[in-house]
Design a protein around this nucleic acid. Structure first.
Length: 424
RNA sequence: GGAGGCGUAGCCUAAUUGGCUAAGGCGUCGGCCUUGAAAGCCGAUGGGGCGCAAGCCCCGUGUGGGUUCGAGUCCCACCGCCUCCGCCA
């Protein structure tokens, strides 16, 4: 949620921000128009309420003095004022509802360091680690490798659940479990995160606070009967953990890590990444979330990103870090780094983590504040990043660690977790 | 699913049968005092509208409605927590 007071002061700043993202800017004028009406109505209501308060005081006084005629007259007058107030309050509610719907659909303002451009071609590569894996044989894609080993079952998954699901067996299933444990251990023991096991089903409000709703309802699985949503990422519960609370500045930054499955309908991605387990309706992810102060959130974004990168470094998987352009960034983000891992099957780098600073955008929606050293209340800044997408990490290991005989070597750091060094 | 209870500010706790400023304590911040600190004392400590400002006004007792001249208080719905019963991995 953007700051309406800031919008009043400098509408052009927000129009410019929308333009950079490739959004229509008319919405800003609509918001301002409703805001003007709202302020007019609010002023009138305030005046009438002041009058009503005055009248009720006089009623009480007249009653004490047992002046029945005066009491009756005042009550009549109060009734009239009350009617007018109610009319205006209905109008005000209507305006507020309209305004809320508009504001919830306005994306966050990009940070000044974000490259301006309409799509991903304007993204900027920040750094690269390692070199694309070279093979002295023809490497296989994971969607061939896995089934040939008998450990990745796409057909039966289709039977059970339809397309974009997979089943893992024995050593491959265990490798995935090892990855989860490795990531959680790294972030909790070395990077200082608090581990969280959150709910996987959340209320509509929760999805709204973190920015998934109302704009992206098509993307989410919903349980009709109870109107609960399957989380598309652990970011949703983690970033709403302190909704409505006032945190102490001394307790910041708060750093949380959670492993959860993620559920996405992938409604807008027909024909994209259809093979294997790159884009599934259900995938495992380890998510990192920070709560911090406005002055420190960009420094925090660098640190959080480095924590995600560390996973790839230890797994010795080649990757690069991309700074997303204004046109490629998500709705809630002010600035986003994508980490992309090398995938031989794509002969390209493929997103495996997305690390964003949302500044106060989510905190405003969820009303998450902290008390500053000077005693004042302010919104926290929230950041989120994958550390990492487990399914895609599994794919990256399968493809980059494959051997000529079709077996897969287990990365050294994972052997203590798997108990074996090669698959099968 | 059934029965009952509860929800007050950052936290804890008050508020006759609906009425005058939601009282008090703790914490936090600022000031006084002090060589420094503690203690003590004074003040501040939710949101909004109008205004250059001083300031004026409104709202705020889980959320949203309703009754009433007037609601923390009465009514309805929802959310959350607790207790008991039922069901259950």
């Amino acid at each position: 949620m953007i700051d309406i007071k800031a919008l009043r002061k400098d509408p052009d700043f927000f129009k410019d921000a929308l333009k950079k993202r490739g959004y229509e800017v008319e919405i800003i004028d609509e918001v301002l128009k409703i805001d003007k009406e709202w302020r007019d109505v609010t002023t009138k209501i305030n005046e009438l309420r002041a009058k009503r308060n005055e009248i009720s005081k006089e009623v009480a006084k007249a009653k004490r003095e047992k002046d029945e005629d005066k009491t009756k007259a005042l009550m009549e007058e109060g009734k009239e004022v009350g009617k007018k107030i109610k009319e205006l309050e209905d109008k005000k509610r209507e305006l507020e509802e309209k305004q809320k719907q508009l504001l919830l659909r306005i994306p966050n303002v990009p940070h000044e360091s974000v490259p301006v451009g309409e799509d991903e071609t304007y993204n900027v590569e920040i750094r690269k680690w390692g070199q694309p894996t070279e093979f002295d044989f023809e490497p296989k894609a994971h969607w061939d490798l896995g089934p040939e080993l008998g450990l990745l079952d796409i057909e039966r998954a289709g039977k059970l659940s339809g397309s974009r699901f997979v089943i893992l067996y024995s050593k491959l299933a265990k490798l995935e479990r090892a990855l989860i444990n490795f990531m959680l251990d790294l972030h909790t023991k070395e990077h200082g995160y608090i581990e969280v096991a959150p709910p996987h089903l959340v209320k509509r409000e929760t999805m709204t606070w973190s920015g998934q709703l109302p704009k992206f309802e098509e993307e989410a699985y919903n349980t009709k009967k109870d109107d609960l949503f399957l989380i598309p990422t652990a970011e949703v519960p983690l970033v709403n953990l302190h909704a409505g609370e006032v945190l102490r500045e001394d307790d910041l930054p708060l750093k949380y890590v959670a492993y959860t499955p993620c559920y996405r309908r992938e409604a807008g991605s027909y024909g994209k990444d259809v093979r294997g387990m790159i884009r599934n309706h259900q995938f495992d992810k380890v998510e990192l979330v920070w709560y911090t102060t406005p002055g420190k959130s960009y420094e925090a974004l660098e640190t959080l990103t480095s924590h995600a990168e560390e996973v790839l470094k230890r797994l010795k998987l080649p990757y690069r870090v991309i700074l997303l352009s204004t046109g490629d960034m998500g709705f809630t983000a002010s600035k986003t780094y994508d980490i992309e891992v090398w995938l031989p099957s794509y002969n390209a780098y493929k997103e495996i983590s997305s690390c964003s600073n949302t500044e106060s955008f989510q905190a405003r929606r969820s009303n998450t504040r902290y008390r500053r050293k000077d005693g004042k209340l302010d919104f926290v800044h929230t950041l989120n990043g994958s550390g990492l997408a487990v399914g895609r990490t599994l794919v990256a290991i399968m493809e980059n660690y494959q051997q000529p005989d079709g077996s897969i070597k287990v990365p050294d750091v994972l052997v203590p977790y798997t108990g074996f060094e090669v698959i099968p």
